[in-house]
Structures are given as structure tokens and as C-alpha cells.
Simulated assay, not measured.
Amino acid sequence: MEALLIIDYTNDFVADDGALTCGAAGQAISDRIVALAEEFYQNGDAVILPTDLHERDDPYHPETKLFPPHNIAGTPGRDYYGPLADWVAEHQDADNVYVYPKNRYSSFANTNLDNYLRSRDIRNVHLTGVCTDICVLHTAVDAYNLDYNITVHADAVASFSPEGHTWALGHFQNSLGANVIDA
């Protein structure tokens, strides 16, 4: 069994009017993300959606000082973007679909993701979503440190920084030993 992680693919990170949007780069990967989700789901593999969750003006969260308010609980900005919203609505109760909030860049930090994966004997994680050089990167570093095999789908990650995106793809491969693929 393998796991597909769809990281932070929400309106605030992808939609034109998102609070911290990747814009066109994030929108361009929408169909690929949904196709991968369906492929993994049909194969019986895990489809995991770690999604940023914040409280407005949280004085204790470090991102409050770094970024504008985003993915605020109960707002449309935190909803999944585009066709992924429909896919999640249809599949979220399936045994192999796991939707959970996260409050740090890494999908592993302060969550039970590692326990979820290990309890299902999943050693191979496939990373998609946004932002390539922030949340996807930090998730990859933690996956590496936890001895997971990492595949990054270059055609299913995006960032608001083209330079950061390119750098992160190289870092995944050259420093983390990840398999970076492009369909």
C-alpha cells in the first residue's frame, strides 16, 4: 500500500482571490491532482489530505507574523479548490481517504500522520499540492527523517515562487533522495 498526500490544495492557496495564492501555477495542477486521487483511491491506496487550519490573528502561531491570514477556520478560503472539492465530498468517508487539519508547514508536525501510515504498513508516500517550497518541502524533509520513500509528482505541485519551486524540486531529488516524476 502507498499513500498520496494532497497538501493544502485550498482556495486560499490556489484561487485567484485566495489570501496567499499560487494563482495560475496552482490552478494548472488541478486536474492532475484529482486524477492521482482517483487512481490511488481505485487502487486501494491511501489518499490523505493534510490541510492547513488557522485561527484569525492567532498571537501564538508563528505564521501570523509571516503571512496574511489564510485558511481560517470556517471560511471559504479553507475549502478545497475546484474539482478536488467535489472529489473529497464524494470520497471523504471511504476507509482509504484521510482528511485532517494541520497547523504547521509539515503534514507530520503535531499530527498523527506517522502513526496512520505505520499502522497501515505504508512506507511509500507520494507528495502533491502547494506550496512546493514550503509545506510540500517541509513534509518531504520530515518524511525523509522518518525513513519514508518519497515520490514528488512535479506535475502536481506548485508555488507562488517559480524560483522556490525549481529549487525545491532539485532539493527533493538531490538532498532527500526523492523520486521526482513528471507524467
Rank of each mutant, 00 (worst) to 15 (best):
E55A: 09
T132L: 01
Q92W: 14
D133P: 14
H70E: 10
G177H: 07
G18T: 00
D45W: 10
V88L: 05
V125M: 12
W87K: 14
T21D: 03
V99I: 14
D182Y: 03
V88S: 08
A156P: 04
D93Q: 15
Y9Q: 04
I33F: 08
H153K: 01
T10I: 04
T21P: 09
G74E: 11
Y100P: 11
V125F: 06
I7R: 11
A37R: 02
D142L: 03
R120C: 06
Y105H: 15
Y9M: 05
L137W: 14
E2T: 05
G129R: 00
L117Q: 12
Y100F: 15
A3S: 13
D52K: 05
V47Q: 06
Y116H: 15
Q173Y: 04
D79S: 13
N179C: 05
P69T: 05
F160L: 13
I181N: 01
L49P: 08
I122A: 14
P59W: 09
N145I: 02
N110W: 14
Y81G: 02
L49A: 04
E2P: 03
D8W: 00
V136K: 01
V99F: 15
L127Q: 11
N11Q: 07
N179F: 05
G26R: 00
M1K: 12
G77I: 03
S119K: 09
Y116M: 15
V130P: 07
F67C: 03
R123G: 14
D16N: 07
E39Q: 10
E55P: 09
V141E: 14
V130M: 03
A178W: 02
S159C: 04
V136P: 01
Y116K: 15
N149A: 09
D12K: 02
D31V: 05
C22H: 02
Y148H: 03
N124L: 07
Q42E: 10
F13A: 00
D142S: 11
D133G: 12
D31E: 10
V14Y: 01
T111E: 11
L176K: 02
L36V: 01
Y9I: 00
D142K: 04
P50W: 13
I6K: 07
N115G: 13
D12H: 03
Y80K: 13
H91Q: 14
N179I: 07
S161H: 02
L137S: 12
A140T: 00
L5W: 08
F67V: 01
I134R: 09
V136L: 03
A94P: 11
H165L: 00
Y116T: 12
N110T: 09
L117C: 11
A73F: 13
L36H: 08
L5H: 05
P83L: 11
Y81D: 00
T21N: 05
D121S: 11
A178V: 01
Y41S: 04
A168T: 06
N145W: 03
T111W: 15
F67R: 04
D86C: 10
N124K: 13
L66F: 08
